[in-house]
Simulated assay, not measured.
Amino acid sequence: MSYTNVQLKFSMFYFFVFFGTGALFPLLSVYLDDYIGLTGTQIGVVMSITPIISIVVQPLWGMIADITGKPQVILVTVMLMSAFIGFFYANVTAYGIIFIMAVLLAVFQSAIVPISDSIALSYVQRVKGNYGNIRLWGAIGFATAVLVAGRLSELIGANMIFYAFIITIVISASIAWFLPRERQSVSVNVFKGVSQLIKTPQYVLFLATTFLVFGPIYANNFYFGIFIKDIGGTLTGIGLAFFLAAGSEAPFMKFSKNLIQRFSLEKTLLVAAAISALRWLFYFTEPSLILVYATTVAQGFSVGLFIPAALQFVRDAAPKTVQVTAVTMYTAVGNGLGSWFCTFIGGVILDKYGIMPVYLLFASLTVAGLFVLVSIMMLQKRAEVQVHI
């Protein structure tokens, strides 16, 4: 199978996976509020389920993939189960049942991105390809979905977001089955490998960086709409802002490999995190809506570079026998623990002080993540000096 054909399959896979994610999750809180009629507290509980569940579940799925040596089979399984649960989720209205559906969906859906990222990165490293060139289609899919699903919801019905999710996830699962079989040969006990990860200072410090930098990035998905409305935007304006922000990630992902090779992995991470911190600080100043639209490219610069660079860092730091576990642990800390912490604390701040101080929190955490990144760079320089001695 030629590299071009494989790249096309990966690109289609990421487009449909993130189209499904973009169709469902940015609009889920609106669905639960306007269509189901849940209270604000109930909506907050439902929306926080995925990050909480992923803290535990993502590393477990990674271990299962490493132990079986069949990450592709695991990936297709969790995708089909996500689609199956999504169908029931779309047809229930009682809060208790919605809570159960949200938990079940989180158990399976939260495994999709880290396992697929591990497969994709393993392939491109083996053939010396460009991960950014295929991952950028995820950003394009997400950006497109926010506009398309919102319009379909207005024309057909609010629960259309679930059917858009189901259809695209099933399409993605069918594509996933024909992706390259990137099987890791497990020659050591996976739990011993996890112990190795925990004893690797650079990896542990990078988990802290992920918590501090990615936590605000993912929590912003919950608060960005409130922020846009607060500075004078409409529901259409919220969709446009998400489209511009997510869409801007694609070109940066495309050129991420060249930038990493030119400026080094660590410097790329440092600059991307710094741009993210400046973005949150800018939002804290309560800028005009036009300026926010104009500066959405900051998300492309920060997220579009940080994601591929972070994944490469994690896989380089991890033993080959537990690389899926390493990626899922990294994702659990950022998508899970970091997202939950920032969402929860951000909600407390929102209730007491309003939306702008939430972004001061995000900026402060990201600056702390910058200091941790500097510590990692210092550790690596020290190790290089010792090797030369």
Rank of each mutant, 00 (worst) to 15 (best):
F19S: 03
F306K: 03
L244N: 05
I238P: 08
L259F: 12
M12E: 04
V348T: 10
V292D: 02
G129P: 09
F142N: 06
P308R: 07
G300D: 08
I43F: 08
V186R: 15
K254F: 12
F18N: 02
L121N: 12
S118E: 10
F165S: 08
G141H: 08
Y283P: 09
L121A: 11
G37W: 01
F214C: 11
I36Y: 05
L179E: 10
G334K: 07
A102Q: 09
Q109E: 14
F362S: 08
G233H: 04
S288R: 11
P201Q: 01
F243P: 05
T210M: 13
P251K: 01
G369H: 00
K9V: 02
L281Y: 08
A332I: 11
A383W: 03
P319R: 06
P251L: 02
Q261T: 13
V113E: 03
T168A: 13
Y359V: 09
L305H: 01
K70S: 06
V190Y: 03
F15Q: 01
G96N: 14
W137L: 07
G69N: 00
K192L: 14
V30G: 07
S122F: 06
L28I: 12
L373D: 03
I345N: 05
V327W: 02
T296I: 10
V92W: 02
D66L: 02
G346P: 10
L60I: 15
V385E: 13
L28R: 01
G300T: 00
F255C: 06
G233D: 04
W61K: 04
L281F: 14
I349N: 09
S174Q: 11
S48R: 03
F282V: 05
Q58V: 10
I97C: 00
G239D: 03
I36H: 11
M160W: 07
L155C: 03
K257C: 01
T321W: 07
R151G: 09
I100Q: 06
F313H: 05
S11F: 04
A294G: 15
G193T: 02
V303R: 00
L379E: 14
P180R: 03
T21V: 15
P26K: 10
G354M: 09
L379N: 14
F242G: 07
G247N: 00
F18I: 02
E384P: 09
R135H: 03
F255Q: 00
V190R: 02
S54T: 15
V6L: 10
Q299Y: 13
P216M: 01
I175P: 04
S288F: 11
F284W: 14
I134D: 00
L360D: 07
N220E: 14
F362A: 01
F313L: 13
S185P: 08
L205D: 07
K192H: 14
A164P: 08
F306C: 02
S153E: 12
I100L: 15
V56A: 13
F371K: 09
V374H: 07
V314N: 01
Q386G: 05
T268G: 00
T236F: 12
A318S: 11
F341I: 13
G354C: 09
I97Q: 12
V303D: 06
L270M: 14
L121E: 10
K320M: 12
Q323S: 15
Q323H: 05
G334P: 08
M1C: 09
G247M: 10
A23R: 06
I260F: 00
A241T: 05
T328A: 13
I74M: 08
I52S: 04
Y353M: 15
Y353F: 13
R262F: 02
L291T: 12
Q196M: 12
L80A: 04
G233E: 06
V6S: 03
